[in-house]
Design a protein around this nucleic acid. Sequence first.
DNA 1: TTGAAAGCGGTACCAT
DNA 2: ATGGTACCGCTTTCAA
Lengths: 360, 360
Amino acid sequence: MKATLQTIADELGVSRSTVSNAYSRPDQLSPELRARILSAAQRLGYSGPNPTARSLRSGKVNAIGVLLTDDLSMAFTDPYAVAYLRGLAEAASARETSLLLLNLPKDEAAGRRVISNAAVDAFCLYCVPDWHSALELVRSRGVPVVIGEDPQAFGPEASYVGIDERAAARRLGEHIVNLGHRDIAVVAHWIVDDGVSGGRTGQVHADPDDLRYYVTGERVRGFRDAFLAAGVPWERVVLINAAGNQREEGAEAAAHALDRLDRATAILCTSDVLALGVLDALRVRGLQAGRDVSVTGFDDIPEADAAGLTTIRQPSVERGRLAGELLLDPPEDPALRRLTLPVSLVVRSTTGPNTAKEKS
Amino acid sequence: MKATLQTIADELGVSRSTVSNAYSRPDQLSPELRARILSAAQRLGYSGPNPTARSLRSGKVNAIGVLLTDDLSMAFTDPYAVAYLRGLAEAASARETSLLLLNLPKDEAAGRRVISNAAVDAFCLYCVPDWHSALELVRSRGVPVVIGEDPQAFGPEASYVGIDERAAARRLGEHIVNLGHRDIAVVAHWIVDDGVSGGRTGQVHADPDDLRYYVTGERVRGFRDAFLAAGVPWERVVLINAAGNQREEGAEAAAHALDRLDRATAILCTSDVLALGVLDALRVRGLQAGRDVSVTGFDDIPEADAAGLTTIRQPSVERGRLAGELLLDPPEDPALRRLTLPVSLVVRSTTGPNTAKEKS
DNA sequence: TTGAAAGCGGTACCAT
DNA sequence: ATGGTACCGCTTTCAA
């Protein structure tokens, strides 16, 4: 039979409470008794209080649930997501808390089960398509939630750590129009979607106000804000959907902006990863970024620097770290549970003045 | 007050068992009663049975514990580790099981607490330094364990999914000596370590039989096997420690093989990531891989193909997937719980015949 | 098909 | 400093 607290208590002729204290409140009993208990435990192969039983009684699990969409590629492959997760893990680890990775399957009922069954003290939502049906269930669990994207998604009771996506994107747009660009393409992922994948890569005609995925929507709207302010009508912009947020898909998307007569002189992307793909596409065509075509990204991932990519720098690790801290050490003041972090425009070599001759 | 099973039972005048059955055994009660229960639950804001209480009673948590070393960079940054984790998550997700990421802090007592408190049905150990003090505690938890590296690490009761590291490395070594190379450098990480980091990058003199980290040890020994069989004494090989398993560190390590009079004509690395760094170092020096210097990696990560890297292809995702399956659906036959997967030598363009003039 | 009772293995509180 | 006693919220026989 597996050893329990009682086993040890019986062995030593003490009470369960005392054995429990030996583990959970060492100051509540004499050092020598504690030593005897611990050694008896060792001898009997008792590895400490059962975590589940302890959690049931104490109401704490020491785990944060992290919701991920079905294929984990996003969580592990996307540099921004990896940075975020690292920050989150850092904050959690500092409080001896673990991360429970919850993979939401395509099957809705199964997804609900996964959420219902998750033994966690809190949920962290980031990179989760905000229209996902399971989110409502997360709320009904009644545990603290922190969100990382749409500040409205969960109502004001949820903590929030994010950036002003739209304003940030606008700064990129302004940078580009200030350089004289008027023939502009925007490469974004998840503009269109079938609820599962990001659709096909290619030009689309979409109203920026209708985009379903919050982050992409805000960034595209931010670009548009800058264009409109400079007198560039949205209809003149070539909007290209990337099927996913990967480098190859950025390159593929770029083809739709480059291989046409009215080639864009600037390509704005909703992520650095896509922008790196666009740069690949330029290279293949013998075009030079910053001279022939200007390119911008978003995030400032490590690779952006080496590529000379003009982008928005955002504190990715910090976003995760703060999310974890808000969950585990919530400040009294509700206002401090809603954080909008600053970003900065980083101008490097992939953007430059428009040198194309005037359009006829 | 938070709603419980009892709340619903009282509301409807039925027993707790019946409410419980409504969730856990739908076939045990009439559909209409079940519907009434579910709708009452919805109305009262009851999100289903408390996961902790359920786990305590049923003895199942639906989670696999994944041990990670302190900084998560290894788990999230290393392509092999990411692939492995993805496979593991896939297997787990298919069984509605989650992954509990356990971050082992540097502080030993805290690490023990993290392991003791982890509510999991099983542990998966990969990429964990095998000399880590906490491992013994994992065993004493008495739950199933699968290991991914040293097959001996946990004794025969643990499941194991791995490859014959040594034989695989030997094939790379043979490929190199068959190409006529005799001036050889080996770049490996974690040859030396201070228990926390991977030490300094630079040449070291170490006996392959003494290396502490199993995977590196086996791969280096495999290289040596090939060299000895070809008459190349180990003393002639330049062994270089890389402080970590990252591209930059590979480049830095390569300097120690390239910037010397008796430059190596072949550099064998214990991972693709390091090898990519070595290729970077060659490029900087105007050397051509496969002509001036031959380079090999290990793993066959996605980037290896584009780089033309000669390497060993191993089924990384599969390793993770099988590990998960062994944990969740253990086969009766113990022999089937110890899997050694096949690998293959992939020859690309970074290796070629030794063209250096004979050494005097 | 439904209900009653007995734990699952601890922790918290209060008494001693 | 140590022990006694509820009770955390559910699942699981077993009986009705």
